[in-house]
């Protein structure tokens, strides 16, 4: 506990002059087409999405997105989507195993239709109070560490799909 006391004392002794409390950032004013913005942004970061209409079968919507071939998908619930960056918020309370978000090779996130916010300002305000762990997942895992060449599927999901469903 000596270290703690010494560090805190050194910080207080630094006597940094007061700084104003930053003003809250207002929510985005215009309700543009958030769904369209989300879908094109997700595509630009390597993901894909669909809206599952009430009469459609969920599995068919997913397999249409995935295309032919054998698949081993993991379906996880997302709470809401963020239009500006193609991210979906997933909370650990909704999962049996936290590692599922990265273990899955083909990941499908199901988000309630209409649960889209414009920017991260609104997104962080929607984090569940007392959340123990949560993620903003934006597209599949990726790396550009070899000569800046984008490779999809670094260590986590190789495919990431978002399906909006009521």
């Amino acid at each position: 506990m000596i270290a703690r006391a010494e560090i805190l004392a050194a910080i207080r002794a630094a006597e940094v002059p007061p700084a104003p409390t930053p003003a809250p950032v207002p929510d985005a004013a215009d309700a543009a087409d958030l769904l369209q913005q989300f879908r094109s942004t997700l595509e630009s970061v390597g993901g894909a999405s669909a809206v599952c209409e009430p009469m459609q079968v969920f599995e068919e919507v997913v397999y249409t997105l995935l295309g032919p071939g054998r698949h081993a998908v993991v379906v996880l619930p997302g709470r809401f989507a963020v239009a500006e960056n193609g991210a979906v918020y997933v909370d650990a309370d909704d999962l049996t195993n936290r590692a599922d978000v990265v273990l899955a090779t083909e990941l499908v996130l199901v988000v309630p239709t209409g649960a889209i916010v414009a920017t991260m300002h609104e997104a962080v305000r929607r984090l569940p109070a007392g959340s123990r762990c949560g993620w903003f997942l934006s597209g599949p895992s990726k790396t550009a560490d070899i000569e800046q060449a984008l490779v999809i599927g670094a260590q986590g999901a190789k495919t990431l799909l978002v399906v909006f469903r009521d």
Partner: peptide, 17 residues
């Protein structure tokens, strides 16, 4: 950093599993 709108994974963790 990289010109992405956000990183693929952004984890907010407050408690161990």
């Amino acid at each position: 950093a990289t010109g992405q709108p956000i990183t693929a994974y952004t984890t907010h963790i407050t408690a161990p599993r």
